[in-house]
Simulated scan of single mutants.
Amino acid sequence: MKTTLTAGLEHTFSYRVPREKTVPFLYPESDLFREMPEVFATGFMVGFMEWACMEALRPYLDEGERTLGTMINITHQAATPPGMEVTARVRCIEVDGKRTVWEIEARDEADVIGTGTHERVTVNLDKFSARVAAKGKATKG
């Protein structure tokens, strides 16, 4: 990771919510999810917040690096119907080596829909993928 990354970095990222990112699509094999209203699912909102942080970090990554989410602490305060645009404003509040911490606020066109903090760690993608592959082989014994 480039040393030019410092706390205070801000980034804004927007996304129009499609029907496929609503609650019934989160775990379609579950009748409990399928029976819920079609609103932006918390699980997809979390992914959207991570995506915003990943985009903010993109210019600071070296060749072969990616970032992994390691902690998320958010609220989901308001429902968003499909078709609305959501916007995340992220601000880096800590850089500690390969670890970054982000403050996040997400809004739809009417309300604040979620706030919180998120931690990411920078890894070498090839090394990480090799560790995951080895773990998979070890469990298949």
Rank of each mutant, 00 (worst) to 15 (best):
T6M: 13
D126P: 02
K137F: 12
M49Y: 05
W51M: 02
G97F: 11
Y15I: 01
G43F: 03
V123R: 01
E55I: 02
P59M: 12
E35G: 10
G116C: 09
F33C: 05
F128G: 01
R89Y: 09
D96I: 14
Q77C: 09
K140P: 00
P82G: 10
P82H: 11
G47C: 08
L57W: 03
M45P: 00
F40I: 05
R89A: 14
G116S: 15
M45C: 00
R19S: 10
G97T: 12
A106E: 00
Y15D: 01
A52S: 08
V17S: 04
K137C: 08
D126Q: 14
A41F: 02
H76P: 06
M54D: 06
L61D: 03
G47P: 00
W102V: 03
Y27F: 15
M49G: 02
A138Y: 13
K137L: 14
T22C: 09
G136Q: 14
N73L: 15
T75I: 10
G141H: 11
M45F: 01
N73G: 12
R58L: 15
D126H: 14
E20L: 13
T6Q: 13
F25W: 13
A52Y: 04
H76R: 04
V90K: 05
A106L: 01
G8S: 10
F13T: 02
G114C: 03
T117I: 15
P37G: 13
Y15G: 04
M45Q: 00
E38C: 05
M45K: 01
A41D: 03
T115V: 10
R89L: 15
V121I: 14
A106M: 07
L61Y: 06
H76F: 06
A88R: 00
V17C: 04
D108T: 03
R91S: 10
A130P: 07
D126W: 12
E38G: 03
E85C: 12
V86N: 00
E103M: 09
Q77L: 15
Y60A: 07
K98P: 07
E35I: 12
V86E: 04
L32A: 14
P59G: 15
E29V: 10
I93R: 09
D126C: 13
Q77M: 14
I72N: 04
V123W: 06
Q77G: 12
E20H: 15
V90Q: 01
F13G: 06
M54P: 00
H11D: 07
E35S: 14
G141A: 15
P82Y: 09
V95Q: 05
R58A: 14
E35V: 11
R107E: 01
G43P: 03
I72V: 13
M54I: 06
T87F: 05
I93Q: 08
K137P: 02
F13L: 06
E50V: 05
D62S: 09
V90G: 03
A130N: 15
Y60H: 12
K140C: 10
R120S: 04
F44W: 00
P82D: 09
E50I: 05
F44L: 02
M45D: 03
F40Y: 04
E105L: 09
Y15F: 15
T117P: 03
I74E: 06
F40A: 05
R120E: 03
V86F: 07
F44C: 01
E94H: 10
G69K: 06
F128D: 04
P81V: 15
A134F: 10
K140D: 13
D31K: 13
G141E: 11
E38P: 00
